[in-house]
Computed example of a mutant assay.
Amino acid sequence: MNIPQLRMHSQMAQIQISQESGEQTIRQPKADVTIQQPKPEVSITTTPAKLSIDQSKAFADMNLMRIFQRNKAFAQEGQTSVLEGISRRVRQGNELMKLENEGSPIVNQAVQNAHPKMKTLGITFIPSLFSVKLNSQPAEVNIEVETKQPIINATPNKVEHRYERGNVAIEMKQYQDLTIEVIQLES
């Protein structure tokens, strides 16, 4: 018995896609900026320092004084000597009034009045210590600064944007196909 056979050949359809990429460029130019800084205003005021030196006591210690000061010193020294002499005479007079007491006041007074006091030897500093008087007032500095704000001008530039579209092409690379054959087989 002969049964015919069917033989089928099929071919699938194929699509071909070709693509061209798009291009895009973006550029941002720098902004135009100007900055100005005004100078600050500075004012400086100073009060000068003062120094006063008083050497009058040092000069007086070295016996170098003005005539009015010398007269005053001599008057003071004379007054002190007079008061010492008066007190010595009063003391000695009181001793003589009391002759009846023990001792010999006349001999003691004769020895005291005959020999002057011994001068003391020693180191003396001329002029005396701390005889020069210093008085100082420091200087004062006053600084005033008035700052000024900076002047800033900025102009931004627009973005430069360029875009080229891409393209997609779709084509049939291969069409579908179906072929059917009838084959007789011999037995």
Rank of each mutant, 00 (worst) to 15 (best):
V145L: 06
N2Q: 10
N2K: 10
A139M: 07
Q16V: 01
Q55R: 09
R66V: 11
V33Q: 05
A139W: 04
T120E: 15
A60C: 05
E140V: 10
F74Q: 12
E100I: 02
T120N: 11
Y175G: 03
L6S: 09
E164C: 00
S18K: 04
T120F: 07
R66S: 14
I106R: 07
G93R: 01
Q24A: 12
Q69K: 03
L6M: 13
S10M: 06
K98V: 08
V42W: 07
P116Y: 00
T124R: 10
S81C: 03
I15L: 10
P40F: 02
E95S: 07
I151T: 11
L178T: 08
L185G: 15
I152G: 06
E140D: 11
K39S: 01
E186Y: 04
E146Q: 09
A110G: 06
N167C: 03
N71T: 14
S187E: 12
M172A: 10
S87N: 11
T25N: 08
V90Y: 04
T155M: 05
M8L: 15
I44L: 06
D54M: 00
G166N: 03
F68A: 14
R7V: 11
I3E: 13
E95A: 15
P40G: 07
S56C: 04
I106C: 07
I44V: 15
I26Y: 01
R89L: 14
V132R: 00
L178G: 00
T46N: 04
L6K: 03
K50M: 13
V82G: 04
